[in-house]
Computed example of a mutant assay.
Amino acid sequence: MTELHLNNVSFSYPDGTKALENLTLSISTGERVAIVGQNGAGKTTAVKLMNGLLKPTTGTVSVGDWDTKDHTTAQVSRKVGYVFQNPDDQIFHNDVESEVRFGPKNMGFDPDRVDELTNWAMQLCGISEFAEENPYNLPYSVRKFVTIASVLAMDSAIIILDEPTAGQDKIGLQVLGNLLQVLEEKQKSVITITHDMEFVTDYFTRIVVMANRQLVADDNAQHIFYNTEVLEKSMLKPPAVAQMAKLLGFPPGILLKSQLIQAIKTNSVK
């Protein structure tokens, strides 16, 4: 059981620029949490603090019983895996399997466990057929899954996905959806930063909204995307389905395509 806690955390760069102010946030084992907001809201700083890439200027970040200030980034990353937005910032090997295998091998797992985790992660991400390929010969969308697999293979309790839907087609989105379901079954916590509100409403039950380096709201999708004050403060637009439902005059609460279709059918019957 690995929980994540940020207690009154602020972060400033050496030149004094503030990137995050007084963030208090707790994420339980097995939770799915989407962090949303405009560029510059503090989202990336927050997740880098979660996995030890940054250390708080004030406040504390704890992963399980660890205070991240007392551990190296490499140590924290064993508990909190971070998939960067740009896969090219994270790929270092000349073939996919070596890239995915690197993490668990370096963590000291026995060879059989390394094989098991490597094969599981590649299969889950739909990249087994590319095992011998150079990652840089693959499309951007597939390289994204190479980096996701390389982090999953480390068997971290908490996974951070930075803009995972960027560049993905319908098949890629389906792979992501299945991946999230499997991780939930394994009681892995998943945190995503994303601008894709449809992805958020389809797969995340808890949404953290940030603006101006601070937390604005922490609630479920219905309460977030039908809260005018929160949307205006964070300059967020609700998903297209919610916008369409509002235009059609349906009551608040519709977020999914299936809900909108049902509302249209019900209304037409009346």
Rank of each mutant, 00 (worst) to 15 (best):
Y136E: 00
N137S: 14
N137Q: 14
L138P: 12
L138R: 11
P139D: 12
S141I: 06
S141D: 13
K144A: 10
K144F: 12
F145I: 08
T147Y: 05
T147W: 08
T147D: 05
I148L: 11
I148Q: 11
S150W: 10
L152P: 01
A153P: 05
M154R: 10
D155Q: 04
A157I: 00
P164R: 04
P164Q: 05
A166C: 02
A166G: 05
D169S: 03
I171S: 11
I171K: 15
G172I: 07
Q174I: 01
V175T: 14
V175E: 03
L176H: 08
L176G: 08
N178I: 02
N178E: 13
N178S: 11
L179D: 09
Q181V: 12
E184T: 04
E184I: 00
K186T: 01
K186I: 00
K188L: 00
S189W: 06
S189Y: 06
V190T: 11
I191C: 10
I191N: 08
T192Y: 01
T194L: 07
H195W: 10
D196G: 07
M197V: 07
F199I: 07
F199N: 06
V200R: 12
V200F: 14
V200Q: 11
T201Y: 09
T201I: 15
D202R: 13
D202C: 03
F204E: 04
T205L: 01
R206G: 03
I207M: 05
V208A: 12
V209A: 08
A211E: 02
A211R: 02
A211Q: 05
N212F: 01
N212Q: 14
R213W: 09
L215F: 02
L215Y: 01
V216S: 00
V216C: 01
A217N: 00
A217D: 00
D219I: 06
N220A: 11
N220S: 13
A221N: 12
A221E: 10
A221G: 13
Q222G: 14
Q222N: 15
Q222H: 14
I224R: 10
I224K: 07
F225M: 08
F225T: 09
Y226E: 13
N227T: 06
E229I: 01
L231T: 00
L231F: 02
E232M: 14
K233Y: 02
K233F: 01
S234L: 10
S234C: 08
M235D: 08
L236C: 08
P239M: 13
A240R: 12
V241P: 04
A242P: 02
Q243I: 13
Q243T: 12
M244I: 15
M244W: 03
A245W: 06
A245K: 09
K246V: 09
K246L: 04
L248S: 03
G249Q: 08
F250Y: 14
F250I: 06
P252C: 04
G253W: 10
L255C: 06
L255V: 11
L256G: 04
L256H: 15
K257W: 05
K257F: 03
Q259C: 06
L260I: 09
I261S: 07
I261M: 06
